[in-house]
Design a protein around this nucleic acid. Sequence first.
RNA 1: GGUCUGGUAGUUCAGUUGGUUAGAAUAUCGCCCUGUCACGGCGAGGGUCGCGGGUUCGAGUCCCGUCCAGACCGCCA
Length: 582
Amino acid sequence: MYRSHTCGELRPSHIGETVKLAGWVQRSKDLGGLTFVNLRDRYGITQLNFNSEDNAKLTAEANKLGREYVIQVEGEVIERSSKNMKIPTGEIEIRVSKLTVLNASKTPPFTIEDDTDGGEELRAQYRYLDLRRNPVQEKLRLRNKVALETRKYLDSIDFVDVETPMLIKSTPEGARDFVVPSRMNAGQFYALPQSPQTFKQLLMVSGFDRYYQIVKCFRDEDLRADRQPEFTQIDCEMTFVEQDDILNTFEGMIKHLFTEVKGVDLGDKFPRMTYAEAMTRYGSDKPDIRFGMEFVDFNEVTKGRGFGIFDDAEAVIAINAEQCAVYTRKQLDKLTDWVRRPQIGCKGLIYMRCNEDGTFKSSVDKFYSQEDLAKWAEAAKAKPGDLILVLSGGLARVQKQMNELRLHMGDELGLRNPKVFKPLWVVDFPLLEWDEESQRYHAMHHPFTSPKPEDMHLIDTDPGKVRANAYDLAMNGVELGGGSIRIHDRAIQSRMFDLLGFTKEEAEAQFGFLMSAFEYGAPPHGGLAFGLDRLVATMGGSESIRDYIAFPKNNSGRDVMIDAPSPLNEEQFKELNIKLTL
RNA sequence: GGUCUGGUAGUUCAGUUGGUUAGAAUAUCGCCCUGUCACGGCGAGGGUCGCGGGUUCGAGUCCCGUCCAGACCGCCA
């Protein structure tokens, strides 16, 4: 037996007991004759006491221990003469009678402390050491808890966990596939799933009725702080349901998770908003509704005063940053520089201060009288002391830019508290999205999404206007998940492939199996998928998902610990009938 | 594919207008200290200033190229 207790469990009630502990040396302190060693494991830290008056030889051995040595000790639990009330085990310590070094350690490249001195790159390279740190372990335990509660909840309402294959077929729609060469089928490739989409629909055709899976998905696209090439979805699908049934079911799941895992009550009913409304009010399909600062249409109050920038613009949009009239010229210039960065791409930023004395000061006073500006304030419901920020240009572009500015102001003003959680269902997404590059429509969600029946009449005349039975769950400005009611009718599915520019032959080759399945009594069905990594990161109050993944990849899709990807040898290429053209 | 920021001791960083021997903190090692817990005191070792080229009497510092990391845009049904 290596240990009788963990390093987090001994209390004054254990005083007098002889115990055996094992763990890592957090740090040791030689006071000259008296030596303290902090022993750490997953559960906590227990102090070991070595006294040269008791045992000089043992104390000398203890003084040789370095950080991260793995040791085992035996000794008596005693009361500390100076207690540390900051840690749960701080009232006791172990008077050690036997010390065994189980494994020595090199000095780690960074300190294994909650507040480590190591930078990200180094910690990624030594991820197994980084994972010894408490804050990182806690994040993975949070993930474990979320996954466990997800299973409990879905299992309790009759969802069945079914595994789907990882080696599947490459399809043209959507993200780039990761591909895997097939040795037994020379010149042919599997693709790793971007999601189990078609399989879960086939399971509905099979009559499973309620399916879920916590499953890895793969997309070969460029990465971000909240995007990894392999990520995990809570993937779900249900039969004989309408949109409301799905929203209600998974609203229940998210509420369950927040209650059980975070002790947070998300309230009675998640608010719902149409895509169109979200775009008009926030310029985003995943608005952060933790704060207001909603868009105000400024077309009416700005046009026709001879200011060309506004007069010629398709859209003039304002936000009201409350209590920000105190912003100095320097701060406003900095904001202007911020929106002019190429990533945002504004030409400029117009502002208006609402002075405390009721007068207005704008950067376009030349064109607008005090009466004009009073109308601005009225439109934006601005009070003295507020600051109005205005952007103009093409509608879609300004919405996007103003969304960025709004979120930036929210950050600056501390309105985006990571401990506050505001869910929002965004519904009625457009079915299709025009792609300039390929000059054709793309499915906004995916090709199996059903159009709204009441919009079907537009499908030939104005397909871009057709709305879909598609929905997303946004929280705090993050898209946590999304889904749709699927097409279960072969004719409509064919029509959809048509719209997406597939020939009959292509559609047959890519998705023939699905369309065939639809001819054998496919039930109405729909579902959704949550990004587990993002969900857990949001619950943990982080924007980066990397800390919530045990072994994440870096910006360029590399695992810097195992150094992957890596070249193959000649033999492997030969076996696969692959020649490099590099 | 693009934009921005960074790369200096094991680590985190500073380094002025281009100018003497490149510093601090922390970690490590040694000595002192019997109640530390961010202990303290004294001392020591530790540098390919990412890499390559250029300008210059002289480059950590300026220029060009390149590699790496991070954030973002494009991309991500």
